[in-house]
Simulated assay, not measured.
Amino acid sequence: LVGWFLTDKVIEPRLKNTAVNGDPSTLPTLDELQPHERRGLKFAMAAMLLCALGLVLTAYGEHSAWRATDGALTSASAPLMRSIVAIIFVFFLVPGIVYGYAAGTANNHRAIIQGMSKSMSGMGYYIVMAFFCAQFIYAFGQSNLGALMAIKGALALKELALPMGVTLVGIVFLTAFVNLLVGSASAKWALIGAIMVPMLMELGVSPDLTQAAYRVGDSSTNIITPLMPYFPLIVVFCQKYVKESGIGTLVALMLPFSISFLLLWSGFLLAYWALGLPLGIGSSLSFPALS
């Protein structure tokens, strides 16, 4: 409801007078599906289901090549998990090719290559931007400023010895701020969690609740930090519609969402903690966990 209200009452009125000046040929349309397109979609769906069936059948047996040495399918060492990118690629590629042949939009391999090339033609700006963003992120990471801010902030929060509800909100806002400086979620958790988890365990707070507070702060400011890996890609999609779009444009548009969700989710977290509601299956709010 908050997302709808912000979109309908804040963001859309702000963009009301913004001219869409992107290339019309690259913008999506809402035309009715033609018979050949419906036929292509049916065959593409059948192809995707066959791919899924093939994956299930080859992974079902206990001696499947997709499994790890201990027989697990979802462990980090399992070939299935290590091949997830290639599997996703195949699940997009096969239905796409089948659709092209069934719908008559791609009658040979040259048309397929041409379609792939056209899809990637708009990524030039992203590749250039990603190069310079990568240099900045690397240099910033080498400076250890983000790590310094995370550790100093966590230690300061610990020394304040605030009431529990205030401490939880402090973790949320500390994480939201550090998120602007450190792009990797695992790196932030390694820095903040190493201090906050033992500290709050001493106060009777479970690691589950500590990580929930961390997740609220981490997710709220992802869309306004240029250090997020997908930020340049989102800017590129904006430029398909409005050529003048840039980093500042995206941050300004997303800031109302970021602030509102940060406050809303913090309130949700405090309500769960105050009412003693479980955060999830097998989770706890206190340490040691109450049976």
Results as ranks from 00 to 15, higher is better:
residue 101 Y to I: 07
residue 102 A to K: 10
residue 103 A to L: 14
residue 103 A to D: 15
residue 104 G to A: 07
residue 105 T to S: 15
residue 106 A to L: 14
residue 109 H to K: 11
residue 110 R to G: 03
residue 111 A to E: 10
residue 113 I to A: 12
residue 113 I to H: 02
residue 115 G to N: 13
residue 116 M to V: 14
residue 116 M to E: 05
residue 116 M to A: 14
residue 117 S to D: 03
residue 118 K to C: 00
residue 120 M to Q: 04
residue 122 G to V: 13
residue 122 G to Q: 11
residue 123 M to V: 10
residue 123 M to N: 13
residue 124 G to Q: 03
residue 131 F to K: 08
residue 132 F to E: 04
residue 133 C to I: 09
residue 133 C to D: 04
residue 133 C to L: 11
residue 134 A to P: 00
residue 134 A to V: 02
residue 134 A to D: 01
residue 135 Q to H: 12
residue 135 Q to I: 05
residue 135 Q to N: 06
residue 136 F to K: 13
residue 139 A to W: 14
residue 139 A to D: 12
residue 139 A to P: 04
residue 141 G to V: 02
residue 142 Q to F: 00
residue 144 N to S: 09
residue 144 N to H: 13
residue 144 N to C: 01
residue 144 N to M: 07
residue 144 N to K: 11
residue 145 L to Y: 09
residue 146 G to P: 00
residue 146 G to N: 00
residue 149 M to V: 15
residue 153 G to E: 09
residue 153 G to W: 09
residue 154 A to F: 03
residue 154 A to L: 08
residue 156 A to C: 05
residue 157 L to Y: 04
residue 157 L to N: 01
residue 158 K to Y: 02
residue 158 K to L: 11
residue 158 K to A: 07
residue 161 A to G: 01
residue 161 A to D: 09
residue 163 P to V: 00
residue 163 P to C: 01
residue 163 P to R: 01
residue 163 P to Y: 00
residue 164 M to W: 08
residue 164 M to R: 13
residue 164 M to Q: 11
residue 164 M to C: 05
residue 166 V to C: 03
residue 167 T to F: 01
residue 168 L to D: 06
residue 168 L to P: 07
residue 168 L to S: 06
residue 168 L to V: 04
residue 169 V to W: 05
residue 170 G to S: 13
residue 170 G to R: 13
residue 170 G to H: 12
residue 171 I to P: 00
residue 173 F to S: 02
residue 174 L to C: 09
residue 176 A to W: 10
residue 176 A to C: 14
residue 178 V to A: 13
residue 179 N to L: 02
residue 182 V to Y: 08
residue 183 G to A: 15
residue 183 G to W: 11
residue 184 S to F: 05
residue 184 S to C: 09
residue 185 A to I: 03
residue 186 S to F: 08
residue 186 S to M: 12
residue 187 A to L: 11
residue 188 K to C: 07
residue 188 K to Y: 11
residue 190 A to N: 05
residue 191 L to P: 01
residue 191 L to S: 06
residue 191 L to Y: 04
residue 192 I to R: 04
residue 194 A to R: 10
residue 195 I to K: 05
residue 197 V to E: 08
residue 198 P to E: 07
residue 198 P to C: 06
residue 199 M to N: 03
residue 200 L to Y: 12
residue 201 M to V: 09
residue 202 E to K: 09
residue 203 L to K: 15
residue 205 V to L: 13
residue 206 S to N: 15
residue 207 P to Q: 05
residue 207 P to Y: 02
residue 208 D to K: 02
residue 208 D to M: 07
residue 209 L to A: 15
residue 209 L to R: 07
residue 209 L to N: 11
